[in-house]
Computed example of a mutant assay.
Amino acid sequence: MSIKISQLSKNFNQFAALKNIQLSIDDGEFIAILGPSGCGKTTLLRLLAGFLSPTYGKIEIGENEVGTPERSLPPEKRNIGMVFQSFALWPHLSVKEHIRFPILHHRFIPAELKKNADERIQQVLQMVSLEKLSDRMPNELSGGQRQRVALARAIAPKPELLLMDEPLSNLDAELRMEMRKEIQKIHRLTKATIVYVTHDQGEALAMADRIVVMNNGQVEQVGTPAEIYTRPKTPFVAKFVGKANLIEGRWENDLFTPHLSPDIEWPDDGVADEMKYFGCFPVRPEQLYLTKDRNKNDSITGIITSIQYQGKEIHYVVDVSGQEWAVHSSVYDQFQIGEQVFIHIKHAVRKNNLVILK
């Protein structure tokens, strides 16, 4: 089911939670709404679900206008499924009965599907790998299993639009990785349009077809995960997705000269025009490397101020003329706090739609 959001704004008294949102979502697309707490992403999801009415603008789902300031369809009149952050399971219903409930009561469910409810329940149990746990109660399940039940309940009536509000935030790191794969599998099997709200850039980059990055109630950038990560258009996107170092300097003829090192010139390796307007060169931590000796003319001097061992790599913070630069380095090249180092940049080379650092 396609979605069209036009000039959408939402005010709570004098506070503008959303400001002039423009967004189109294709049928069957997986969209991640990404941003920090308070940016408006959950408000946008609640507007899509019908829990809130727009202050200005409109929402169209499929061929129907479902939300305007004058008229907003309630959730039960929209063909949607919803997965909440808190799971929201009923303590008195088993796994199987959680799945049966929407099949019997969802407004838009086809008569044939309702007639063959038991067959549909088995299909959904297989999708979420809960066949052996169908008679268990919620208090007998782990956190990951409860989240699977919430997903199963949402997809059981075959909704055309699936809304997810930070569904993995209450799980531990290992379970979150496992559930990412489950959600991707569900998307492939159901072919439903998914709008997935998260503050976790890893989730958005791993699962979404496109990412909508939000900040202060506005859309900062919309693009594929690769576009958002490698070609951020604003300083906020560069810092929030990928934790890029924003090096200030001057752009001239597609060459960048950092203010703190006027003898250096970096070639344009795909920096967005919008970032050039801000006078910035976004450099991701893995795009930099450190040496103990000045073995190149384009090196920049810094002092190690923080070290975090991460197993496969080491995360350094380097003081460069009073600025803090993040550098992710190999575990085989180790440095000490207080040590002087020389920073070099690996330039991005685009080949067959891939970005290679050299």
Rank of each mutant, 00 (worst) to 15 (best):
A204T: 08
K19I: 07
Q218L: 05
K158E: 15
K243I: 12
P69W: 13
L162I: 09
Q85Y: 10
I194G: 02
E286P: 08
G143R: 12
V341K: 00
R176L: 02
L18F: 11
K158R: 14
A49F: 12
A326S: 12
I300P: 00
I211K: 01
Y289E: 02
L151F: 12
G270A: 05
A244D: 11
D298N: 11
Q336A: 15
K181E: 10
A208G: 01
T42E: 01
S6C: 12
L354Q: 12
P91F: 09
M137S: 09
Y56P: 00
T42L: 01
E339T: 09
N253M: 07
M214H: 07
A17E: 08
G67E: 04
G279A: 10
I343P: 00
Y277N: 07
V219K: 02
A111R: 07
Q123R: 12
L89I: 14
S129H: 15
A192C: 12
G28Y: 14
D268Y: 03
G50L: 11
Y277E: 12
G270T: 06
F101C: 03
N215Q: 14
L255C: 05
S330H: 09
V331D: 05
G40Y: 14
Q122C: 03
I304D: 03
K41V: 06
V128L: 10
L48H: 12
T42F: 04
Q201M: 07
K292M: 00
S129V: 14
E160Y: 03
R107P: 01
P262D: 05
H105N: 15
I194M: 11
K41G: 03
D209M: 05
V95E: 04
V213R: 05
S261I: 04
V222H: 01
V149E: 07
I307F: 07
G311E: 09
E112V: 03
M275C: 13
E60M: 09
V317D: 08
Q334F: 13
Q287M: 14
R148K: 14
M179Y: 04
F101W: 11
I59T: 07
M164Q: 03
I343G: 00
H328P: 02
K191H: 15
F84N: 04
V124K: 02
E174R: 14
I314P: 05
N352S: 09
R231V: 08
F240W: 05
Q7N: 15
S330A: 11
T190K: 11
G28W: 13
F278T: 06
G81I: 08
S261K: 06
S37A: 04
N253R: 09
K77W: 06
K158S: 15
G322W: 07
E60D: 04
E324K: 11
G62A: 03
H98K: 05
T291E: 04
F87Q: 05
S94M: 08
R148S: 12
S53H: 08
K4E: 15
K58P: 00
Q7V: 13
I5V: 15
G217S: 09
V222A: 01
F15P: 01
L18A: 10
R46K: 14
F15I: 10
T301C: 05
M179R: 01
E265T: 13
I264F: 03
